[in-house]
Design a protein around this nucleic acid. Structure first.
Length: 207
DNA sequence: CCCTGATTCGC
DNA sequence: GCGAATCAGG
């Protein structure tokens, strides 16, 4: 494989989107993440944005919120014709017994009724009658994480990537979280927090 | 061990 | 220019 204009373009785009070198390599195919990183450097776009010089994979809740009232990434490109203004979010109907079981065997046929659970991606999330069984902390955490979701497709999921579905399965605005889910669990920490809850917590929150 | 990007250096 | 090997780190 060689770096055709098209492939370079994909590389630039994905790198700008914050995708990891390995993900870009997977997308392109025929190259390793090393190749991607090498190319990235040769293209002179090593520093993602701003140039914090920081490493990667910064967990937790940001660091040093100092003088920062503007988003870090202004998104230079308008992307395609994707009117993702409101960007509806689906709150998966989680159940300890078979959470998002539709994921594993998802053949495109998704639970349509979920559409009812669509909520606007607003800042304050008022106590919802249906989703109020989830702790506010967990919800906040999830929203935060989903911003940084790897946006994996069904095919890209592995044993250690979060399989939490995000978006509307009926549209193109659908992907899987994809963040690390190490402990052999199907979800990342944030989503595990929403998917699995202690019985006591559920009962306490119950009316 | 999983993963990340950064750098080196023979090709 | 390319990218595997290696380094440094979470």
């Amino acid at each position: 494989m060689s770096w055709t204009d098209e492939r370079v373009e994909t590389l630039k785009k994905m790198w700008a989107e914050g995708q990891s070198a390995s993900q870009i390599a997977k997308e392109l195919g025929g190259v390793t993440r090393n190749a991607v990183i090498g190319k990235v450097h040769r293209l002179g776009l090593s520093n993602r944005v701003g140039g914090t010089g920081g490493k990667e994979d910064e967990d937790e809740v940001m660091e040093a919120p100092a003088a920062r009232a503007e988003p870090v990434k202004p998104t230079p490109e308008p992307v395609a014709a994707a009117p993702r203004a409101p960007e509806p979010r689906v709150v998966p109907d989680r159940a300890p017994s078979q959470p998002a079981a539709t994921v594993a065997s998802n053949t495109g046929v998704a639970p349509i009724p979920l559409r009812k659970a669509i909520i606007p991606a607003g800042q304050p999330l008022p106590p919802q009658p249906s989703a109020n069984e989830i702790s506010p902390e967990a919800l906040a955490s999830v929203r935060e994480v989903e911003k940084r979701a790897k946006r994996l497709t069904l095919m890209e999921l592995t044993e250690r990537t979060c399989k939490w579905p995000i978006g509307d399965p009926a549209t193109e605005d659908f992907w899987f979280c994809g963040l690390p889910s190490q402990a052999g669990k199907p979800y990342c920490d944030a989503h595990v927090g929403v998917a699995f809850q202690p019985m006591s917590a559920r009962r306490d929150r119950r009316r």
